[in-house]
Design a protein around this nucleic acid. Structure first.
Length: 328
DNA sequence: CTAGGATCCTGTCAGC
DNA sequence: TGCTGACAGGATCCTA
């Protein structure tokens, strides 16, 4: 399911094609997929020009300016070590982006960018893996279609309608219910294991009885980790997901931070991951689960470390995979 | 403060 | 073959 690495892979893909494009049409076939559609807010997208695409946790942010005549700055190249979003708002011809299209894919959302009559150009697509990534669009999972002046289109598909788009003023980003409560980014270069411990212990501090699995999934404590990377990170760190955050030693948090970073970076490099065929923003199949997953989706298969069967249990209301020998 | 469950929604799959 | 129920899990909301 789309987590931080999937969002980042999509962000990089879209950021390589969208900047400079002017929105010429918006088709909304599922009102609940666009927050504020009752007010026909989506009509405000018309005529806006894309500045850049950023990411915060699992959320994508498409920055837009209303003046379509402005010259768009060249998007910054992506650097593996720096995937930070919400940096200083980009300047376009001296004007800050004034609107932001927020996109959260939740569980089954996907974004597909298509250029008609250009079979040579690979379609950009990413998110939840389903045939809609490579099939004819729109289809029955298509919720929003954003058309651009050059004829290209961005499809927002979402089988289960949990994801959403939302248009807000750039100045209101700090007030957004979701964004304003998000925890720190684990891939921030200066994010230390002490920061990780402080974040996961939360408000209750050393008295917290929350399980480490629940804490990792809590976006207010740490941004971007979902079920797959929580399980994989804990395996790499050798930590039992049922342990409480307060029982973990400094060494555990050191190992955990390394595990989290390794998982996320490997997945981004592999083009993301999902339970089935994952197609990244360049139309390639993501390979994280195939190549690097040790426990997720491997119930009953041998632990790559000790050979004992991976077990699946329930922790924090989620399916949780672990090796009971290697994780203590 | 926390845990746990239900909720949103649809597609898939196991079992009968 | 076709039905039924369980399951998938991101985030929110409610109850205990």
């Amino acid at each position: 399911m789309p987590e931080l690495p999937e969002a980042e892979v999509i962000r990089r893909g879209l950021n390589s094609v969208l900047p400079g494009k002017v929105i010429s049409s918006v088709v909304l076939s599922e009102p609940r997929s666009f927050v504020g559609s009752d007010d026909e807010l989506h009509n405000d997208l018309m005529g806006l020009c894309v500045v850049c695409v950023e990411r915060r946790g699992k959320m994508l942010l498409v920055r837009l300016v209303s003046n379509e005549r402005v010259k768009v700055a060249t998007p910054k190249p992506c650097e593996a070590a720096s995937v930070t979003a919400l940096e200083a708002p980009p300047q376009v011809a001296g004007v800050e982006a004034d609107l932001v299209l927020l996109i959260h894919l939740r569980m089954t959302g996907q974004l597909v960018y298509r250029i008609p009559d250009q079979a040579d150009d690979p379609a950009l697509s990413g998110g939840y893996p389903s045939a809609s990534l490579i099939g004819e669009l729109p289809d029955k999972s298509t919720r929003v279609i954003i058309g651009f002046c050059d004829g290209s289109k961005l499809y927002f598909n979402d089988q289960r309608k949990f994801g959403y788009m939302k248009l807000i003023a750039a100045s209101s980003l700090v007030d957004d219910d979701f964004l304003s409560r998000l925890g720190p980014e684990p891939l921030e270069p200066d994010f230390t294991w002490q920061d990780l411990r402080t974040a996961l212990l939360g408000k209750a501090g050393k008295l917290s009885t929350t399980t480490i699995k629940a804490a990792l999934l809590d976006q207010e404590k740490l941004a971007g980790i979902g079920n797959i990377y929580a399980d994989e990170s804990l395996f790499r760190a050798g930590i039992d997901p049922r342990r409480s955050v307060s029982s973990l030693k400094p060494k555990d948090y050191q190992h955990l931070l390394v595990g989290i970073r390794e998982c996320l970076m490997q997945s981004i490099a592999a083009g993301g991951s999902t339970a089935r065929n994952y197609v990244d923003a360049l139309g390639l199949r993501g390979e994280f689960l195939d190549l690097h997953a040790a426990v997720y989706g491997r119930t009953g298969k041998p632990c790559p470390n000790c050979g004992r069967p991976i077990v699946k249990i329930r922790v924090a209301g989620r399916g949780t995979h672990l090796c009971e020998k290697c994780q203590r």
